[in-house]
């Protein structure tokens, strides 16, 4: 019976709000977040951003409901069942971070056939009826080399720290870095290790390879590994090279310390977990009748020497630098893709 009660409550709230202010056409619409995993700092930040932004949207009467559901075991079949549940619960739109790019296509198609708007982000799905807000991981690798070329026109030796072996994201960023090296031929990759996007793993891996390496001028990374790399260089008593950071709070803190002590200069790049809130607004805009292209690319969150302090101040301990999207930001993002 709780379903009925929520519905009644939702209608009551909508009516109460409707009396005073002018509302978007989506005031009665219900949006659900189907999330496959919540076990790391990035996902936790993503869920927190979703909660914060959608709560306000519900309170403002822009949508009637925006609940988040996370599957317990990060399994495609489990998430397919979750999507089918959402169809039955009468949601108007499903925002999706998918466990598999293809294995949910059956359930996604069922949702589309039921007239539900499906917007996938980060972990996108290939089903053509769904919208995709994808991350250009290749570019994330390539821009690191572009930055290095700007800082060291003469080039130098580069150590690459990769992510978790066999994962799509790792392959993509690596391909981007390879492309970047090809473009800026003055750089040479002298070593490559897997840091698994975790500081401790990266530190151990870098410490293991350092004795066999010549002078290292720069380290390219995938995020969650820059701080560990710095520690390994320090422990080995070697000069600290230019290490690209990945927006984690520990990395930014270390960078700030170095900057204050000796003017250390680098850049930091990763995806803001708030991309989930962009997906939320995109879904709301589609429900509102706006024509949105099926494929959108998310911009990265890049931190430079100038805005380091500002970003560090808003990043909580153990977290990731974040940007939450407002309705206007989303409208701008949509307009720029068209």
């Amino acid at each position: 019976m709780t379903g009925k009660k929520t519905l009644v409550a939702a209608v009551a709230v909508t009516l109460a709000l409707g009396a005073g202010t002018a509302l978007a056409d989506t005031a009665a619409k219900k949006i659900a977040l189907s999330n496959n995993y919540a076990g790391n700092s990035w996902r936790q930040a993503m869920l927190k951003s979703w909660d914060k932004v959608t709560k306000k949207a519900v309170a403002d009467g822009i949508v009637a409901e925006a609940s988040a559901f996370t599957t317990a075991e990060n399994q495609a079949t489990e998430q397919a069942a979750q999507i089918q549940n959402m169809i039955l619960q009468g949601y108007d739109a499903i925002v999706l971070n998918a466990a598999s790019p293809t294995a949910l296509n059956g359930a996604v198609k069922q949702a589309c056939d039921a007239g539900i708007v499906v917007v996938s982000f980060d972990g996108v799905v290939t089903e053509p009826c769904a919208w995709r807000i994808a991350v250009d991981f290749k570019k994330m690798g390539a821009i690191q080399l572009d930055y290095l070329a700007k800082r060291m026109p003469k080039g130098g030796n580069v150590l690459e720290i990769r992510g978790l072996a066999g994962v799509f994201v790792d392959d993509e960023i690596h391909a981007g870095i390879e492309a970047g090296v090809k473009k800026n031929a003055q750089f040479k990759i002298v070593g490559s290790v897997h840091g698994d996007w975790a500081q401790e793993v990266a530190q151990k891996a870098v410490a293991g390879i350092l004795p066999s390496l010549p002078q290292v001028d720069a380290v390219v990374t995938q995020g969650g590994d820059g701080y560990g790399a710095a520690q390994a260089f320090k422990a080995a008593g070697r000069p600290i090279p230019l290490i690209i950071m990945g927006n984690r709070q520990d990395e930014l803190t270390w960078w700030k310390e170095q900057k204050d002590a000796n003017g250390y200069e680098t850049m930091s790049v990763s995806i803001a977990p708030g991309v989930g809130t962009l997906a939320f607004w995109v879904a709301q805009q589609i429900l509102d009748g706006v024509d949105v292209p099926k494929d959108m690319i998310v911009p990265f969150l890049q931190i430079d020497q100038g805005n380091l302090e500002a970003n560090l101040a808003t990043t909580e301990a153990g977290g990731v630098a974040n940007v939450e999207y407002s309705l206007d930001d989303a409208k701008k993002a949509i307009a720029s893709t068209k």
């Binding site: 075991e73 399994q75 495609a76 079949t77 489990e78 397919a80 598999s100 293809t102 294995a103 949910l104 296509n105 059956g106 359930a107 198609k109």
Partner: peptide, 16 residues
Amino acid sequence: SLIGLTTSAQANIAMP
């Protein structure tokens, strides 16, 4: 029957 529903496959799709 599972791929008949999901329309595609993945190595760990049926682990549970």
